[in-house]
Structures are given as C-alpha cells and as structure tokens.
Simulated scan of single mutants.
Amino acid sequence: MNYLDTKQIQQIIPHRHPFLLVDYIEDYEPGEFAVGYKCVTYREDFFKGHFPQEPVMPGVLILEALAQTGAVAILSKPENQGKIAYFGGLDKCRFKTKVRPGDKLRLETRIVKQKGPLGVGEAVATVDGKIAVKAQLTFMVG
C-alpha cells in the first residue's frame, strides 16, 4: 500500500488549508486510483452556517474531496507532476446519506478513462460502509 500524509499530499496537489479536504491517502496507484480519508470534525468552518441546528457537510465539498483524491492519482504520474487537475464536469451524481461531525469519510476515486489531458473518474464517498455520495467526475489536467 502507498500511504501519503498531509505534507506528502501537498507535494502532489496545490490545495492548502482551509480547502485541502483530504487528511491522508491510504493507498494509490499513479494514474489508476486513490483511496483517502477526511476526518470530519465539528470545528470545520462550514458547520457554522451549514446548518447550525443540524450540522451537515455540504455535498459540494464532499465532491471536492473526491476530486482532490482523484487528483492525487492523476497528478502523481511523473508526466503530470507540478500541474493542476481542474473539474471539467459532473455526471450521475447521487447523494445518499448525510455526513456529520465525527464521521470518517472514505474517499475513493478510480480513473476509468483518460485521453490526453482529459479524463473521467468514478468516485464514491462512504461513511461506515454506507454510500454518502456517488458520482462520475470529468477532469482536465492543465
């Protein structure tokens, strides 16, 4: 298994606090897949307004965490080092369950297609084995 801590992730992708949404990568294969985790705490800034009476991690941030996980897989390829992976599109997105403070969000993105700078990843975020979000992410490396 190829483990990456936060500092190693930051050597691959350009995101930084407060927008780095992956705490660590459990395993990855350059150009193939990455599995990461986000330990969701009540101290996250977005919980101040989303929602104070019932804190729920915004779905778009879960998607961003999945995209960052996929970016680790894509940008760890030697020919992509130092580049940025941009969102190109989102398809087949489904939100299944809420992500709350205290949850350990498992993020898995598998690269299923890539032609030149464009590609597609199949992404799934789970909590305790239950699907929170499932989506197909289109990206562009630039």
Rank of each mutant, 00 (worst) to 15 (best):
residue 51 F to A: 13
residue 9 I to N: 12
residue 102 G to C: 01
residue 122 E to H: 11
residue 77 K to I: 06
residue 122 E to A: 13
residue 88 G to K: 00
residue 112 V to R: 11
residue 95 F to V: 15
residue 111 I to Q: 05
residue 68 Q to N: 03
residue 21 L to E: 06
residue 22 V to P: 11
residue 132 A to L: 08
residue 97 T to D: 02
residue 50 H to L: 12
residue 84 I to H: 08
residue 75 L to D: 09
residue 22 V to Q: 03
residue 37 Y to R: 01
residue 99 V to N: 06
residue 95 F to Q: 15
residue 11 Q to E: 14
residue 132 A to M: 09
residue 103 D to K: 01
residue 121 G to N: 01
residue 83 K to V: 09
residue 26 E to Q: 15
residue 82 G to S: 02
residue 62 I to Q: 07
residue 23 D to T: 11
residue 82 G to K: 00
residue 116 G to M: 08
residue 31 G to C: 02
residue 68 Q to K: 03
residue 141 V to C: 03
residue 92 K to F: 07
residue 29 E to C: 11
residue 85 A to F: 09
residue 64 E to H: 05
residue 77 K to E: 12
residue 90 L to H: 09
residue 131 I to E: 10
residue 129 G to A: 06
residue 123 A to T: 12
residue 41 T to E: 10
residue 12 I to W: 06
residue 34 A to C: 10
residue 91 D to A: 05
residue 42 Y to R: 14
residue 135 A to K: 09
residue 100 R to L: 14
residue 38 K to G: 11
residue 87 F to C: 06
residue 18 P to V: 08
residue 132 A to Y: 12
residue 12 I to M: 05
residue 137 L to G: 03
residue 15 H to W: 11
residue 45 D to F: 12
residue 37 Y to E: 00
residue 20 L to A: 04
residue 23 D to A: 05
residue 78 P to H: 00
residue 127 V to P: 00
residue 76 S to A: 04
residue 31 G to S: 03
residue 12 I to G: 05
residue 114 Q to E: 12
residue 36 G to L: 00
residue 7 K to N: 10
residue 101 P to V: 15
residue 34 A to D: 09
residue 6 T to V: 15
residue 16 R to G: 06
residue 128 D to P: 03
residue 122 E to I: 10
residue 125 A to H: 07
residue 75 L to I: 05
residue 88 G to D: 01
residue 101 P to N: 14
residue 46 F to R: 13
residue 40 V to C: 09
residue 129 G to Y: 10
residue 68 Q to T: 03
residue 34 A to R: 04
residue 94 R to G: 11
residue 50 H to Y: 13
residue 17 H to F: 14
residue 10 Q to M: 14
residue 112 V to Y: 10
residue 103 D to A: 01
residue 83 K to N: 11
residue 33 F to A: 08
residue 119 G to M: 05
residue 38 K to I: 10
residue 19 F to L: 13
residue 136 Q to W: 01
residue 4 L to Q: 11
residue 19 F to G: 05
residue 127 V to T: 04
residue 54 E to P: 00
residue 58 P to E: 03
residue 94 R to D: 12
residue 52 P to T: 02
residue 48 K to W: 07
residue 58 P to C: 07
residue 87 F to T: 09
residue 119 G to L: 04
residue 99 V to C: 04
residue 120 V to P: 07
residue 137 L to V: 07
residue 48 K to S: 11
residue 31 G to V: 07
residue 29 E to Q: 15
residue 23 D to E: 06
